[in-house]
Design a protein around this nucleic acid. Structure first.
Lengths: 243, 243
DNA sequence: TACTCCTAAATTGTCAACAATCTACAATTC
DNA sequence: GAATTGTAGATTGTTGACAATTTAGGAGTA
């Protein structure tokens, strides 16, 4: 019998998690200052671990750190959204391709992915934000199948970004079709399993495009038209013809 | 008249730079331990800034940090090389496309890029490793034209990775054709300036492929064949047909 | 009023001491 | 001898105090 080594998190990571949640839940707003002394008092720890936690959040882009002037919660904008989706589309293509090719040689570890998908199934009809979060979890697990550490890491990273967008840009994904979403995911997983890379890419890109469309729903026609003016937006939707 | 605020680096950043150089220059080898006490003594500072520096290097992937057990210099492998080049090809395509499209609307800030290219011209015929370094500088500046902060950041990141590969995987780029390299860069810049995105992408992808071929030169035929077995390698060279 | 200079308060940066944890190796057991 | 346990030393994690820097606001000046 072997046990999983249960790598407890460091204090700094724990703190970073709490502060991250505070930002994503809206307790902390863009522009708010993170004052080490204050935080160390409310978390009942010294400033050292707090400093480290702030550095972690800074590398995640969640806060901005200015030398001798402390950190503030940073504010996302639309360009960030488009950049993040462009990256996810493109990096995701690489990852699902690689996963497809790996699947032909060896059995992939699909356990985590199917578990995430199952979680999505049971959440159909429930809270919309929860579904976004589960969807991001699924995508991270899926991309991890590609066994490309940097790209996998980038997905964790941009998932946090999307959390920020959802929070601060009023994204809802409210009336999206959860069942269609899940059946797309099922198809994608199957394509990877049988090693059909080009189909996997097609479904993946389609998923990103649907996500972008969903994210635009809460905005007025004027705002959406403005968004479509941006070069990156064209690229996101032209790419469906690629490969 | 306004001046650029010259954000002096923090002690930790300065230390990170020194340690990073020590790794890239070969004073520190993969597997070597970074002991806070030792480092703080040789740099004549306290352990606080050293700790921060190590965290910085850890997020760069240059060292691996294990809780309560300190950091060790991490070792790169061939899969890392292929992943990094795949990312640079793909993200670079997005960036040069975006730069091309921007160039149609506004004047791009080409100053930095042309300066880097000039530096490469004067270095023709000189030290090969210096040319690699200048080339990476040029590429970073070029990608920065895309004005996509996350992708730009990723390029800085992977440039460090390539430095590690050069150091520890014996890459030389010795007999590469520096003049051809530069003329390719000139064509790429011009394509961006006139807004010819598809040509820019083509040249960019070709450049990455040439880089990968160069990087394989020092290796035996057996090793190269083995490399070509890997899925990612196929993707890197299939991609030239994309778009 | 608009501008500069100055000072105090707030805040981050640095440090050295102490606590917690891990590692290596000797002692012990079977 | 091999496996286990125990212990000392090395190393990281945490803390509170002090130093350096920035910020905000008031006094003085034109």
């Amino acid at each position: 019998m072997t046990f999983q080594a249960l790598e407890s998190q460091s204090t700094a990571e724990l703190l970073a998690e709490q502060i991250r949640d505070a930002i994503l839940v809206g307790k902390l707003h863009p522009g708010d200052r993170l004052i080490e002394q204050e935080l160390s008092e409310s978390f009942k720890t010294s400033r050292g671990p707090i400093r480290e936690a702030i550095r972690i959040l800074a590398t995640e882009g969640l806060v901005e750190h200015r030398k001798n002037r402390g950190a503030i919660v940073s504010a996302p904008n639309f360009d960030d959204v488009l950049e993040v989706y462009a990256m996810r589309m493109s990096m995701g293509s690489i990852a699902v391709t690689h996963a497809s090719q790996l699947s032909l040689e060896s059995e992939l570890d699909l356990g985590k992915v199917t578990k995430k998908l199952e979680a999505m199934r049971t959440a159909v009809g429930g809270n919309a934000n929860r579904m976004i979060s589960l969807d991001l979890d699924f995508q991270s697990a899926l991309i991890a199948l590609g066994a490309l550490p940097r790209i996998t890491e980038m997905f964790e990273q941009t998932a946090v970004d999307i959390g920020v967008f959802v929070r601060f840009l009023g994204i809802k994904y409210d009336d999206s079709d959860h069942k269609a979403l899940i059946s797309r995911h099922e198809k994608l997983l199957k394509a990877i399993k049988v090693g059909n890379a080009s189909q996997a890419i097609e479904i993946w890109n389609g998923h990103i495009q649907t996500s972008v469309r969903e994210f635009m729903k809460p905005f007025s026609e004027v705002e959406v038209n403005e968004l479509f003016e941006r070069p990156l937006m064209n690229n996101l939707f032209e790419m469906e013809n690629v490969r």
